[in-house]
Structure formats: C-alpha cells, structure tokens
Amino acid sequence: MKLPNQHFQDFPIEYKQINPEDFISAGFDVEEKVIIEPNDDGYIFDALRRVIGISDKKTVVVNAPVGYGKSYAIIKLIKAIYDIKPESKIIVATPFVSLVEQYVTDISEVGNIPKNDIYSYSNLGRNKKESYKDKRVHVLTANTLLGNPGEDGFKNSDAKRLYIDNIIEESFKDNSEVFFIYDEIHDAIQNFKEEFMLYL
C-alpha cells in the first residue's frame, strides 16, 4: 500500500549533530570539526582517508547517514592500520552480537586480512583450541568490552573478563598500540555508564 507524502508533512526529522562544544563543555580538549563530502558515487571513504591520520593519537567520530559507506570505510581503515602498524591490535566493538560474525567475514573478505589473524569473541568457550592471544584483530560487542553483563546478568562472564584481561596483558607485554573502533555507537550508548567506564 502506497501512502501519500502528506502524512509525513509535519513529521519532525531528527538529525543529530556532534560538535566540539559538546566535548569542550565536559572538559575535553578537541579540535575543530571537519566536514567531509562524499564522492560522486555518494561514499565517504576517500574523503575520510584524507583527514584521518593513523599515527595521530586521537578520537574520531564519523556521523554520516545510512548508505554512505561507513562500514566499508571502517573495514578499509582496519586494513590500513593492519598494514601500516604491524605491531598493533585492533578492537572492533559492535552494538549487537548479530554484527560480530558479519564483521569477521567482511574484514577477512573485503579487508583482505587473513581470517586466522581475526578473533570473533563468539568463539569464547566454544572453541577452546583456538587461541586469541596472538590475534591482531578482535571483534566483540561493546557490552563485552565495557564489562556490561546486560539487563539479565549480575556480572560479565568469567570467560569474557579473562579474555579482555588477556588482551590488555598481551598489549602491555608486546607494547602494542591498540586501536578501538566502535561501529553504530548510538546503538551501544547505554553501555557507557559510570559503573562500566573503569573497564574501558
């Protein structure tokens, strides 16, 4: 059934902006906002690549509509980090368990990173023979990364806590740079509570 557009005439469109003032008022030192334009095909990867310095130690927030190639850009960024920083670890946090395996597949196939160097946290407790300590790319949920057990749990499982502790320990031991990539962070924002920030 096709609805006429008049039903949406007074419907408000919600557009969220992220501005430096939002962080400055909280006491953070931030740079000016950079606005990028998509290429002729409507994708942001080329423009994003020009403004993100992999060697820069900072937080970058990408705010773009659906269909602009954010996931593709993330995978290409992971590949660039993987190639340019061979001693690094890359942690990809998704809001949903359902995205973990999709990311593992895309990082391997689109990013051309060997699958045996990518660890899916969904293997915790299932595949005890597979070691995660030597993996460079880790894909997990924001819940796991921040120690949030979810609405039904009292604490994160011991296996998940040990996993995170071991990644930290290995990173210190190897003196590895660690890159964190949060995808769809707006869907994981409920995890960023004071009680979980100590785990970060």
Rank of each mutant, 00 (worst) to 15 (best):
A80V: 11
I84Y: 10
L77W: 04
S71P: 01
A80E: 10
I74Y: 03
V60F: 10
I84L: 07
S88H: 01
K76S: 10
K58T: 12
I78F: 03
G67Q: 07
T59V: 06
I74T: 06
N63T: 12
K76L: 13
V61C: 08
E87R: 06
Y68D: 01
D83T: 09
K58E: 13
S88N: 00
V60G: 12
P65W: 10
V62E: 09
K58N: 14
V61K: 05
V61Y: 10
K70V: 11
P65F: 09
I81F: 01
E87A: 01
K85T: 04
I81G: 00
K58S: 09
S88R: 00
N63G: 05
D83G: 06
K58Y: 09
K70R: 09
G67M: 13
A64G: 01
G67C: 11
N63M: 06
I81N: 01
L77G: 04
K70N: 06
I81R: 03
G69M: 03
V66D: 09
I78Q: 04
P86G: 01
Y72E: 04
Y68H: 15
Y68M: 13
I74C: 12
G69V: 01
K58D: 11
G67L: 14
K76I: 10
S88G: 02
E87C: 01
K58H: 12
I78W: 03
G69W: 02
A80I: 08
E87F: 00
Y82V: 00
Y82P: 03
I78Y: 02
T59L: 14
I74P: 00
V66M: 15
A80D: 13
V61Q: 05
I75R: 02
Y82L: 03
A80S: 15
V61A: 13
K85C: 07
E87G: 07
V60C: 11
Y82M: 05
I84C: 02
A80C: 13
T59A: 11
G67R: 07
I78V: 13
Y82K: 01
K70G: 01
S71C: 06
P65R: 12
A80P: 05
Y72T: 06
I81A: 11
K85N: 03
K79A: 15
K70T: 04
Y68Q: 10
L77I: 14
A73W: 01
V60Y: 14
K76T: 14
V60P: 11
N63Y: 09
T59P: 09
Y72M: 12
I74R: 03
I84F: 08
D83L: 11
I75C: 02
L77S: 07
S88L: 03
K85Q: 14
I81C: 07
E87K: 08
I75W: 02
Y72R: 10
D83P: 02
I74G: 01
I81T: 04
A80F: 12
I75G: 04
I81S: 06
G69C: 04
K70A: 04
V66W: 12
T59G: 06
I75N: 07
V66R: 14
N63K: 12
Y82A: 00
V62A: 05
K76N: 15
